[in-house]
């Protein structure tokens, strides 16, 4: 696993978020193209359930990474300043990614998928 002060951490949170976003939009489009759920069901369809589960899992992973970076930044105050800078910033990136995932994912709970 990537160390909390690895420079790639600066992008990883949002890269995971991008992959999630592509999966969300792509999954919705493919789901609606292949097996569109009945419009009368509203938001309670298998497709919404799948997308909501995906969203929850992604957000959970991001929050876990956020916690990891945050704790590393707290505990290892003797790191070189540039390492600590990366750790703190990465925690911020994970936080942003997690919040974006949740905010963009919320409509899955309330809207029918295909119309």
């Amino acid at each position: 696993m990537l160390a909390p002060s690895h420079p790639l951490q600066l992008a990883l949170g949002l890269i995971v978020w991008s992959v999630w976003f592509v999966a969300l939009y792509g999954g919705l489009s493919i789901g609606c193209a292949l097996a569109p759920p009945d419009a009368d069901l509203g938001a309670r369809t298998w497709l919404n359930g799948l997308l909501a589960a995906l969203t929850a899992m992604t957000a959970a992973w991001l929050v876990w990474q956020l916690r990891r970076c945050w704790r590393a930044a707290r505990s290892r105050t003797d790191d070189a300043p540039n390492r600590r800078f990366i750790t703190i910033l990465s925690a911020g990136i994970y936080a942003v990614a997690a919040v974006s995932t949740l905010v963009i994912g919320i409509p899955v709970l309330g809207l029918p998928p295909c119309p």
Binding site: L24, L28, S29, C32, V103, I104, I106, P107, C114, P115
Partner: peptide
């Protein structure tokens, strides 16, 4: 396009 997909992009645009 599906209104749900529009909602994703709408939320992202505001974020």
């Amino acid at each position: 396009i599906p209104h749900l997909a529009q909602a994703f992009f709408s939320a992202a645009s505001m974020l």
